[in-house]
Design a protein around this nucleic acid. Structure first.
Lengths: 112, 112
DNA sequence: TAATAATATTAGAAAATAATCATATAGTAA
DNA sequence: TTACTATATGATTATTTTCTAATATTATTA
C-alpha cells in the first residue's frame, strides 16, 4: 500500500549513500559553492563531481544558479543538514555502546 | 581528513537505501517483531527478508534475541525513527514546493 | 566570430549490489 | 535420535553504480 512511499524514501537515502555526496553536502553547509570549489577542495575529476551533483539535483536535494561562467549550488531543504547530524548522532551512540561493552567486560586479572 | 567519517555516514545511508529495509524499519516502529511476521506481512521470501535484516544488523541498526523457535528483532537506536520522519518531512516539502509552482503559474486564459 | 573557461553529458569498463536458489544450522518436539 | 520449523549462509548470475576519458554545451572575452 505504502509501497510508493517506501521507494521514495529509499531513493532519497540512495542519493545520500556515497562518501563524495556526503562530502559535498557538508561543504554546502557553509553556504553556496560553485562547482570549481568542489573540484578543487575535494580533489576530484570535474566530471565526477558533476555527476554526483547531478544525482543530488535529480533528487531535488540541491539546486543551482548560474553566475557568469560559474554554476553555484545550494542545498534546498535545511532538514537535510539535520538528517546528517542525526546520522552522526547514531554513529556516536554506536561507538559509545561498543566502548561501554569493552569497559564493562570482566577484568582479565584480579577480578571475578 | 574526515574521509573515514564520510564513508561511515554513506554506509549508514546505504543500509537504509532499499524499500524493503525502510518497510522493515517502519514495522519495527510498532515494537519488536519476529522474522516470521516480516515474511508474512511483507509477502517476501524468507531468505530475502533474512538478507535485508542481515544488512541492517551489520550496520548495527537492529539486533535480535531468540525466543524458542523465533528470532525477534528490534531497532537499536530510536534516532533511526527520527531520521525516517525527517526524510518524510523533506519529501513533503518537496511535493509542496512543486505544488506551489503549479499553482503560481500564469493562468492559461484570461490573464496576462 | 573564434577562442577560452566552467560545467555537463555520454560511453564503456570495472566494481559493487541485489536476487535467486540451494544448502546449512539450531532449536524443539516426538 | 529423527523429523520439523525458523532462520541464516553461500554461490551464481543479473543488475546497478561508479569512475575515467572524451565530447558537448554555455557564457565570456577578444
Amino acid at each position: 500500500m505504502d509501497e510508493r512511499l517506501f521507494s521514495m524514501e529509499a531513493e532519497f537515502f540512495k542519493a545520500l549513500a556515497h562518501p563524495t555526496r556526503v562530502r559535498i553536502l557538508k561543504h554546502l553547509r557553509e553556504g553556496e559553492k560553485c562547482v570549481c570549489e568542489f573540484t578543487a577542495d575535494l580533489d576530484m575529476e570535474q566530471s565526477n563531481t558533476s555527476q554526483h551533483l547531478a544525482i543530488l539535483r535529480k533528487q531535488d536535494i540541491v539546486s543551482y544558479r548560474k553566475e557568469g561562467l560559474k554554476v553555484i549550488y545550494k542545498v534546498n531543504y535545511p532538514q537535510v543538514f539535520e538528517i546528517l547530524d542525526m546520522v552522526e548522532d547514531v554513529l556516536v551512540s554506536q561507538v559509545n555502546a561498543t566502548l561501554n561493552l569493552l569497559n564493562e567486560r570482566p577484568k582479565r586479572r584480579g577480578g571475578e
